[in-house]
Write a protein that binds this DNA or RNA. Structure first.
Length: 445
RNA sequence: UCCUCGGUAGCUCAACGGCAGAGCGGGCGGCUGUUAACCGCUAGGUUGUAGGUUCGAAUCCUACCCGAGGAGCCA
């Protein structure tokens, strides 16, 4: 066995004899020559077996191995533009082949498959080239998020997943038996982070979050990952300034580090390259006017129906899509109606029917990827809002305390990781951006 | 919860009231540059479940189960 190398660094080993430890992704051949597509987790490359150059038993072993068999390939790395792979253009002229395990007949063939079958075999599907590429981008998105925050003075704080009560009223929560009491799986760490900022200034939490809503769309899962930064001494303008710097960094980092994967996904990165500050800032009032104008100008009766909206209503997916089509980068929509948003959002000065909330909408039809706001800092106002929403005051005692001891203007937002990855990768459904997605009606595997 | 579509070979689908089929994948054989290779041979079926109509049901009817797409919902 020669020097064991990973496929993603193969370009550094041209002319050397190396060993690749991996699995057979695909195979084709023609009599005295066999082409093996070998993947090792970091990439895919071609190994060539040429009968006259090999001991007969090695060549025969190559003919017999099945898709997904575990193999160790040794040979000389050569540049060859005909060789497919990630990265393409390199192949191994094989001198030795060790079969670690011959795989049984593998269910996922190189042909097309239906969604149901693929989800049922998700534990195997993640080995496929497109899924592999998406999940590599996901890891980079998560890494980039943490890197930006860690180098800008934010401290990662763990917030609880088991929570005592319906924090914010309307949403449906998963119930868990807790030694005879009922607790709930967290749908946000925000309220806890509002406590954390008074100890650490700028914080974030990053973890799974849960929703028991019966949403069945390409944008929803029952378990998804959310990143939630929270900042003391930060108003709505400061929040938007931070968000655009942060998101721009994450997108540019993916373009730099995951170019091969985005190429595998055939992602047109033109729109992603535009993701630099500043992002357009559109008020809710303006957004409604724009949507009504688009609606008036369309000849499509179906779209006309979908775009119906009155001031005060939250946007649906069609509204977001049509609005973002007018711009070449993500946009902020701020100042939503108070009635459509959560109780803790700071009212607009002299306009209590509107609050200091902001959503970031991704372009190309991907819609809302962050939702945030400036939080109420006045204890009396917060208590009044809790009463107006008929929330149990005693459950929020600790939360009200935060406004009694050094309260300051503060803001934060939540970023949906799966939606962000779907946007960056240009894929249709958020479920493919999570290795083992949980959706309404599927918790297997 | 509602609407729409679907469930036939390992997979993707056809057959739509009259013999259950094809392509891919698997197996065997051939081929020196393949990119979802190609050529020949071959094995492979409780047509989602239960009931009904009919001389005859994968096909029509009823109920149920499962899945997908969308709506509602979504701090």
């Amino acid at each position: 066995m020669a020097n064991i190398v990973s496929i993603q660094t193969i370009a550094n080993h041209v002319g050397e004899e190396v060993t690749i430890q991996g699995w057979l992704y695909a195979k084709t051949g023609k009599g005295k020559i066999q082409f093996l597509q070998v993947r090792d987790g970091t990439g895919i490359m071609q190994a060539v077996l040429f009968k006259p150059n090999l001991p007969p038993e090695i060549f025969e072993a190559g003919k017999r191995i099945t898709q997904e068999s575990a193999i160790i390939v040794t040979g000389t790395v050569k540049q060859n533009e005909r060789a497919p792979g990630v990265p393409g253009g390199y192949e191994i002229d094989t001198t030795d082949l060790q079969v670690v395990q011959v795989a049984e007949e593998y269910p996922i063939t190189p042909k097309e498959h239906g969604v149901e079958f693929l989800l049922e075999n998700r534990h195997l599907w993640i080995r496929s080239r497109l899924q592999w590429a998406v999940l590599r981008v996901r890891a980079t998105v998560m890494r980039a998020c943490r890197d930006w925050l860690d180098t800008h003075g934010y401290l990662e704080m763990s917030t609880p997943i088991l929570t005592p009560a319906a924090g914010e009223g309307t949403s449906t929560l998963f119930e868990v038996d807790y030694f005879g009491d009922t607790v709930y799986l967290a749908q946000t760490g925000q309220l806890y982070n509002e406590a954390n900022i008074y100890s650490f200034g700028k914080v974030y939490c990053f973890g799974p979050t849960f929703r028991a809503e019966k949403s069945k769309t390409r944008r929803h899962m029952t378990e998804f990952w959310m990143l939630e930064p929270e900042m003391a001494y930060c108003d709505l303008d400061g929040l938007m300034a931070m968000e655009e710097e942060f998101i721009s960094y994450v997108v540019q980092r993916c373009l730099e580090e995951r170019a091969s994967e985005l190429e595998v996904l055939e992602r047109d990165t033109t729109m992603l390259q535009n993701v630099t500050p500043p992002f357009p800032r559109i008020s809710y009032d303006d957004a409604v006017d724009r949507i009504l104008k688009i609606r008036a100008e369309t000849d499509d009766p179906e779209l006309k129906e979908l775009l119906a909206i009155e001031w005060g209503q939250d946007f649906g997916s069609p509204h977001e899509t049509e609005l973002t089509k007018q711009f070449d980068r993500p946009i902020f929509v701020y100042g939503f109606p108070t009635a459509a948003k959560a109780f803790y959002m700071e009212p607009w000065p002299n306009r209590p029917e509107v609050c200091k909330s902001v959503d970031m909408l991704a372009p190309e039809g991907y819609g809302e990827i962050t939702g945030g706001s400036e939080r109420i800092s006045d204890p009396n106002l917060l208590l009044k809002r809790i009463h107006e929403e008929n929330l149990p005051e005693e459950a929020f005692k600790w939360y009200l305390d935060l406004r009694r001891y050094g309260s300051v203007p503060h803001s934060g937002f939540g970023l949906g990781i799966e939606r962000t990855v779907a946007w960056i990768c240009g894929i249709h459904h958020v479920r493919e951006t999570n290795p083992f997605p949980r959706t309404l009606g599927r918790v297997y595997p």
